Amino acid sequence: MASMDGAFLLQIKPLRVPVWYAGKLESLQWEKNELVSKVASHIFLVDTLSKKINVKNIKELNDPGGNTYNRWGRTSCPNDSSTDIVYKGFAGGGPHKQPGSGTNYLCPPKDPQWGDRSVIEQLATTVDRLRRIKTHGGTTYIRWGRTTCPDVHGSDLVYNGFVGGSPHQYSGGGANYICLPTDPQWGPDTSPKYKGYVYGAEYQSHGTFWDDKKNHDVPCAVCRTPKTNVLMIPARQDCYDGWNREYHGYLMAERDSHASNKEFICVDDDPEVNVGTHADLDGALLHFQETVCGSLPCKPYIAGRELTCVVCTFGP
């Protein structure tokens, strides 16, 4: 029986692939090669198009860090693919004949926004707080006139304290306001012969909608944000596209006739006071700042209007 099986197996001929099936395999192989060629062509096209896309957009996605600066005397940014324009406007500052007012130049935008007490403050959403990413990056800013940080965009309080600066009646000393903490630490007493003085700052808001704040000392809060850029924009209440509003308020500095100059700062629209501090001791002072039409374009800038301001952040 086994020999018969062997004889039977020896008689089996190899199977031949039908001509139509071989043709089908050849056709499928050709289609496969065509698809591979098309995929390679599409990959090349995507690579070519990606190189033509503005490099700044790709960098913004991959590396949202960076910083801001003013290009004085120009209406555009340098012709460099890594630089974006945030806004353009007019160079401005305090009058040169007056010893007081601000010490720094400003770049007010072409589309100023004026204060309106009837405007409802946008509600801070809890989504930003829940979605924020805790990283070691970020930067800091000072919220002038408040003891807390805005509950938006992941800002955290570093410390709060009191606004201080050089006295308004002296021409020397520092030109900036500082945020002094509530828990100072002292070094050895050097008893210098020549020195400057740091006073507390007071609101000088007589006869305004902040009249109840007049002569009160001004609080401050130092805030850390995970965002990588901070920008104070004068004459605006809203940030430009792509930027996040931390807070908005009014531009303040020393009075124009005072001996001491101070940098312009953005004081919160809803200011607090240091309780029990309304004795009118002067020292460093905070005054509203008004526009002067003529040196600034009368359109859109309105003579005698108090300048607003907004603090904006940008980043992941």
Score class of each variant (00 low, 15 high):
Val152Gly: 02
Val163Glu: 08
Ile58Pro: 02
Cys77Pro: 13
Lys262Ser: 03
Gln122Trp: 03
Thr313Gly: 09
Arg305Gly: 06
Tyr250Phe: 11
Gln29Thr: 06
Ile120Ser: 15
Gly207Tyr: 09
Gly276Tyr: 06
Ile53Lys: 09
Asp116Met: 01
Ile12Phe: 10
Asp268Thr: 03
Arg74Phe: 12
Val273Phe: 03
Gly93Ala: 05
Arg16Asp: 12
Asp84Ala: 10
Val39Ile: 15
Lys13Ser: 15
Val311His: 02
Gly165Asn: 10
Arg143Ser: 04
Ser191Asn: 15
Arg71Phe: 04
Gly138Leu: 00
Lys97Ile: 05
Lys13Thr: 15
Thr182Phe: 05
Met1Trp: 04
Lys213Pro: 01
Tyr301Glu: 01
Asn67Ala: 11
Arg224Trp: 10
Pro226Phe: 03
Tyr69Val: 04
Glu202Cys: 07
Trp243His: 09
Val46Arg: 13
Phe209Asp: 10
Ala22Pro: 00
Thr208Lys: 07
Ala40Phe: 06
Gly100Trp: 01
Val152Tyr: 02
Cys309Gln: 07
Gly94Pro: 00
Arg132Met: 11
Pro167Arg: 05
Pro226Thr: 03
His136Ala: 12
Ala253Met: 02
Ser37Tyr: 09
Cys309Thr: 03
Thr48Ile: 01
Val19Gln: 13
Ile265Glu: 06
Ala175Gln: 11
Ile85Met: 14
Lys213Arg: 10
Gly73Tyr: 05
His153Thr: 00
Asp156Arg: 15
Gln113Asp: 14
Asn57Met: 01
Lys24Met: 05
Glu290Phe: 07
Ser191Asp: 13
Gly174Phe: 11
Val46His: 11
Phe264Glu: 03
Leu106Ser: 04
Met232Phe: 10
Gly174Asp: 15
Trp30Lys: 13
Leu296Tyr: 00
His248Phe: 08
